[in-house]
Nucleic acid binder design. Sequence first.
DNA 1: GGCGTAAGATCGGATGCCGATATCGGCTTC
DNA 2: GAAGCCGATATCGGCATCCGATCTTACGCC
Lengths: 102, 102
Amino acid sequence: MREFQRAAVRLHILHHAAEREVHGAWMTEELASHGYQISPGTLYPTLHRLEADGLLVSEQRVVDGRMRRIYRATAAGRKALAEDRKALRELAREVLGDDEVR
Amino acid sequence: MREFQRAAVRLHILHHAAEREVHGAWMTEELASHGYQISPGTLYPTLHRLEADGLLVSEQRVVDGRMRRIYRATAAGRKALAEDRKALRELAREVLGDDEVR
DNA sequence: GGCGTAAGATCGGATGCCGATATCGGCTTC
DNA sequence: GAAGCCGATATCGGCATCCGATCTTACGCC
């Protein structure tokens, strides 16, 4: 279902950016591996929004002879991730039932 | 967080409409009780879309001297609900971890 | 320097969101 | 039986987002 796409994209970005450095092309692959096909016209504006909201910080860097913009989560980003996880857990409980979600 | 709003609204509507008859005002209360504030300008177009997609059927009825449009899930609606639940479970596993979601 | 390439950025039409406002149907009151 | 009320539903308009297609950038290579 595509309704989860938006939430899934945001969660995955924050999730990974909280643990390591991520960049757009890698996120595209990562999301695709979970079945979320996202076009660059969606991903890049999303990254920019998260940065504008102070949840990510970016930096340009040359890796393997390629210019990349790498992102990391800020403290606010990790906080937002925790809140998003909480919201997801609650939604899962509501719809899947307490017996499926601890 | 508001990223889940859209998915949550759709899931709750299908979930309840699969088990009983629902109407707009009741869904507004139900969603609000779960912390999802939805404006009529979002809810009613959403109901219309679900009906146009064949997931709900509606019928006008007078209840307690009030005209209401009541909705029930179709077979396709129940199928969509099952798929949405599956997508939610998978997203929860990815982001919350297998140990939290059965 | 010019080229190829991969990553990122942007554009534009379509869709969705949502607060505010309008409408609708049945009821009540006179 | 006309007027007006009220709750429920419908619509409107402005703004944000989506996303495929396309353009730009920056580097290495020759």
